[in-house]
Design a protein around this nucleic acid. Structure first.
Lengths: 166, 166
DNA sequence: TTATATTTTCAAAACCTTTTGAAAGAAGTA
DNA sequence: TACTTCTTTCAAAAGGTTTTGAAAATATAA
C-alpha cells in the first residue's frame, strides 16, 4: 500500500472512531491529519487537505487545542499559525478521558447523589433506592478507575496493570 | 425528594449519559424507566410514561432486547408483551462493552493492521508507520483490557482489581 | 371465519448538529 | 495612515438522526 492511501484510510477511520467518542468527525480528522503529518500544518493546509471551510477548520482546531490534543506552533518570520498534534498516544487517551469524565460521568454522579436521598416511604421507593445505590457504587468505582488511569503513567499501566486483567 | 421527581430525574440523566455512549436518548430512557419500575411494563405503558409514539417505543425496545439489556416477559392470560430491564449493573456494563468493542474498537484495529503494511520507502512513510504502530499497540491493549473486563466477574473486579489502580 | 388487540414497518416530518462562506476583526507591514 | 494577510464569528444552509403516526402485519379469541 502506498503512503497516501494509508494516510487517507487512517484519517477516515480515526474520524469514525472519534464520532463515537464525543469528538466530532471533522475534529477527529483534523487530529488524524496532524498526527500523520511529518511537519506542522497551517489552517490553510488543513482546509485544503480535508476540503473543509475556514470556519469549520478554525472551530475544530480551537476545540482540539482546548482539549490539549493539538498545539499552536509559531514559525519565526511567518505570520500564520501552524499546528501540531500531541503524538504521545498515552497523553491523548488521558486528555480524552479527562474531558469525558468531566462532561459525562461527573454530572451523572451528582444526580445519583441527589436522588438517592429520596424518602423511603414505600416499597417502590425502597426498590428505587436500591437500584440507584447500585449504579452509584459502580459509577464511583468507574470514576476512581479513570482518575487512577489519568494519574498513572503508561509504562506502569501497560507493563503491570494489563497483565493482571488478562 | 419525592419518588416521582427522583425517577424523573434519573430517567433524564440516564438518557443524557446514554446519548454519549452510543445508545440513543430514548433507548436509554426506556432502559431507565424499566430499571426503576417495580413491575414489568407493556409497550403502551412505556409510550405513556415517556410520551413517545408506538413506532419509537417499538424500535427502541427491540434495540434494547438486541443488546441484551431488556427482556420480554409474557404474563399468562395476557396477550400483550411486558418488558423488564437487566438490573445487574455489572451485566449492563458488560453488554454495552461487548457492543461497543465490536462496533468501534475492532473495526479500527482492522484498519490499523491493514495500513501498517504501507511501504516504508521514505522518511515520511517511516514516521507514519511509527505513529500507526504506536496506536495499534494501545488499541490492542485496550482490546485485551475490555476482553478481560467482559470475562471477569464483578466481585473480583471491584474487590481486587480496583484497589490496584488507586 | 370475523373481530379485536397488539406489534411492526416505513415515508414524511421534526429536530439537532455540523458546515459553509461572507463579513468583521485582528495583527503585522509599508 | 492604509494595505495585506490571517483568524474569528455567526446566520443560514446542508446533512444526519430521531420521531411520528397511519397503514400493514400478526396473533388470539370467539
Amino acid at each position: 500500500m502506498q503512503l497516501e492511501e494509508a494516510q487517507e484510510k487512517f484519517i477516515q477511520s480515526w474520524g469514525t472512531l472519534g464520532s463515537h467518542w464525543g469528538i466530532n468527525r471533522t475534529m477527529a480528522q483534523v487530529h488524524a491529519l496532524l498526527l500523520v503529518s511529518a511537519h506542522p500544518l497551517s489552517a490553510q493546509q488543513i482546509m485544503d487537505a480535508l476540503k473543509i471551510s475556514s470556519g469549520n477548520a478554525n472551530m475544530n482546531i480551537r476545540a482540539l487545542i482546548d482539549w490539549g490534543l493539538v498545539f499552536k506552533e509559531l514559525k519565526p518570520g511567518e505570520r500564520k499559525e501552524f499546528f501540531v498534534a500531541e503524538k504521545d498516544m498515552w497523553e491523548v487517551v488521558r486528555k480524552i478521558t479527562i474531558q469525558r469524565k468531566k462532561k459525562e460521568l461527573e454530572p451523572v454522579i451528582r444526580v445519583l447523589n441527589e436522588i438517592s436521598e429520596v424518602e423511603e416511604n414505600s416499597p417502590e421507593a425502597e426498590e428505587f433506592v436500591k437500584v440507584v445505590e447500585d449504579i452509584r457504587t459502580l459509577a464511583q468505582k468507574a470514576d476512581s478507575t479513570l482518575e487512577g488511569l489519568v494519574k498513572s503513567d503508561q509504562k506502569w499501566f501497560v507493563g503491570t496493570f494489563l497483565n493482571l486483567i488478562k
